[in-house]
Design a protein around this nucleic acid. Structure first.
Lengths: 177, 177
DNA sequence: ATAAGATTTCAAATGTTTCTGAAATAACTG
DNA sequence: CAGTTATTTCAGAAACATTTGAAATCTTAT
């Protein structure tokens, strides 16, 4: 491997690691993902430990978390007892997986909470809906519910297997005037 | 104020606070924003401190950060030396402000880093581009650059003042088959 | 069944972010 | 200008998140 490539890979890992916060994953997870993505090959736990100078426990837990997110997959090699891990190579597929997870982990619970909040002062809570402050409050909650449900519907269409892909939708929106 | 309303507001603050991570802001910032949003009125620092049981320093720093994000504004009242703070009440405007900030803080630097990385092994780096591993690496970087530039363009259109609003674009995409 | 190798778990250590409180600074009033 | 009130700053404290390393568990080959 040319030294330029090794250097470029190492820097890529660092750069991608800085995005961890934006994706909502830990730095090590992002670095492992970067390493697998930029390497292109499947690597075993020891490869990851050596490349990133991290402990076995950390590698194990972070790899499992990446599997949970659905952006890394496990493979086996015949005649080898180790497990090997490879990153999804299609960046759009990876983005869909992340969006899908975050919908489930963040948006769904928020919508559920907003529905509960609505019940506290809504139509089913007798004797309070005449107060103008309560009416204003209910209007705000309605706006939020509508916002999150729109986001959910939009994002759901993007990530659904049968729906149009995010990429094509993005390009369509980005191109037409 | 009916006790149901006070209770509903308090719960809303807690619920919104849990979204802090998803928006990329601290818990206190999210709670202050929630308080201002759900109250509808402008509040002064002492009101915020009392309602959330936080220190003056925390309130001051978090309010300034919310101003920086552009989702809270400062107002004055005649005959009063205190500053009052009010949250943007349009949830779509707030979302646009957040997206706009995160583009600037996260996506722009990532694109810049990817451009730098591309120079390490790209056309301007002589003598390495014949290696197939380098070619594969360059392809991956190209994919990423294209991905982020598409995201940037798309999001930029949503948040630009003269462009169509995010809401209308979202509805357009969500409705048509 | 057992031994070797691979993986997972988790308590303790480390690192990072956020918060407090008091001092310093700034802004207003008369 | 002096006095008063409001705001900002920042070092240390507290809370929170991540990582380590070694023991426990699981897997596979013979």
């Amino acid at each position: 491997m040319p030294p330029e490539l090794a250097d470029a890979r190492e820097r890529f890992v660092g750069t991608w690691g800085q995005m961890a916060g934006a994706w909502g994953i830990s730095r090590t997870m992002a670095e492992i993902h970067a390493l697998l993505y930029v390497t292109g090959d499947a690597l075993c736990t020891d490869d990851v430990m050596a490349a990133l100078r991290i402990s076995r426990g950390n590698a194990s837990m972070s790899l499992r978390a990446l599997l949970d997110w659905g952006i890394v997959s496990k493979t086996h090699r015949k005649g080898d007892r180790k497990e090997y891990f490879a990153a999804e190579q299609d960046i759009w597929a990876m983005f869909r997986a992340i969006v899908s997870q975050r919908l489930k982990r963040e948006v769904d619970p928020m919508i559920a909470s907003l529905h509960e909040l609505r019940d506290l002062t809504g139509e089913r809570a007798p004797g309070v809906q005449d107060d103008p402050a309560v009416a204003a409050h209910n209007k705000r909650l309605e706006d939020l519910v509508e916002f999150f449900e729109t986001i959910e519907m939009l994002a759901g269409r993007f990530v659904s297997p049968q729906g149009e892909g995010l990429q094509s939708a993005a390009l369509r929106l980005a191109e037409d005037e």
